[in-house]
Design a protein around this nucleic acid. Sequence first.
DNA 1: CATGATTTTACGGAAATCCATAATCTGTAA
DNA 2: TTACAGATTATGGATTTCCGTAAAATCATG
Lengths: 222, 222
Amino acid sequence: MFKKVIIAEDFEEFNLAVEQTLKDFNIADFQHAKYCDDAFLKIRKAIQDNEPYDLLISDLSFKKDHREVKISSGDELIQKVRELQPNIKIIAYSIEDKNLRIKSLFENSEIDAFVLKGRNSLIDLKKAINTISTSDQKFISPEIASALQEKSNFEIDDLDIKILKYLSAGTSQDEIIEIFKNSDIKPNSKSAVEKRLSKLKDFFKANNTVHLVSITKDMGII
Amino acid sequence: MFKKVIIAEDFEEFNLAVEQTLKDFNIADFQHAKYCDDAFLKIRKAIQDNEPYDLLISDLSFKKDHREVKISSGDELIQKVRELQPNIKIIAYSIEDKNLRIKSLFENSEIDAFVLKGRNSLIDLKKAINTISTSDQKFISPEIASALQEKSNFEIDDLDIKILKYLSAGTSQDEIIEIFKNSDIKPNSKSAVEKRLSKLKDFFKANNTVHLVSITKDMGII
DNA sequence: CATGATTTTACGGAAATCCATAATCTGTAA
DNA sequence: TTACAGATTATGGATTTCCGTAAAATCATG
């Protein structure tokens, strides 16, 4: 079982709950960080002191407040920690249920578990800790495990997202084309942008551009 | 101090934390509901049994899952409870920080306190309970209290919101007009809808309809 | 090179929207 | 009733987006 744990989480309520869960495992050596920056510093310090953490439990989204931060999201924190200390086990613990983001965490940051915050997340958290402490198995909350299998997220690339973002910011199609031409982004013809949009509308079953932006906003794609 | 409390909240973590807070106040008689429907039924039952709750602490957004529900949001629950039991005190306890929605809770549902979930929300929750238990004062988490003061002289009415919602759902302007005519909603002419939209775009400084829907979505108006 | 497949660009008419102006309706007060 | 103001509707042209077809460019392969 884990000996030394760090929790990156801004909400008191979740901190309390995780703390309780760790105590149930008889893990007494844990620390909280309400900002990603703090978590990172602590992890680095622990390595220097030759007393590294062996588990990081991290939220993904952190509220912005008055304080200036370098690392603003859990995704970044996890990425940096994985580079700094490749052998640490990492549990992402978040309300985030967007396939793309979760997939990327497993593939790019090699997290060991993803626990979805929800009606029964503490049970999942316990299962996750159990699973990854004794083996190199991965754990994913069952509600989204199936969704992750879906291979359907095919071919929405950077350009698509760029177009959607510009649209939602009030840029007209013609203006977008201008911007693309000025920034040497290709393809940048009227037809190309129109074709992209029509594909996106088809894919997301959107009736028109307004609908498309509305849908993709809801899905957290933009 | 409150004697009997009900908490409508789907996340275990928040339930645990609220429970702890109530215990700090020596309130032992409390119940949790993870679905709005359950909360409503319990409140109604308590009235019938002549042992009504005197405080409702309710989240605003609830995760959807397999279960079919009648009341899907805290806003609705609060509205219904206020009608059913006008004298109950209500604390909205949410991550929601959109002015309009919060304002509407105070104005339309006469909630007694709004506690914003965040880094220090438990302190706020305690303050809220203290404040509203001893007087008819309202409590609002300080981070948003100032934002609430802003009185922007909107005159965005139901019709405007209806139009925006239809647009974001992919309905074309012509179709909206059709719908309005069929439902006897007036005004329902092409010009009227166009004029509304142009006013809204002006007000929200939107370049076009896509932008307008994007902005109003971000603001939580639709 | 030559060839064919794929991607990108060009073009044009249809449809939807944007926007300004004018006509009509509705309620109120003299 | 009449006159007036404000709200609503009608009209039409400009602009933008939509959508299909065709031409041109690019790329892989033999």
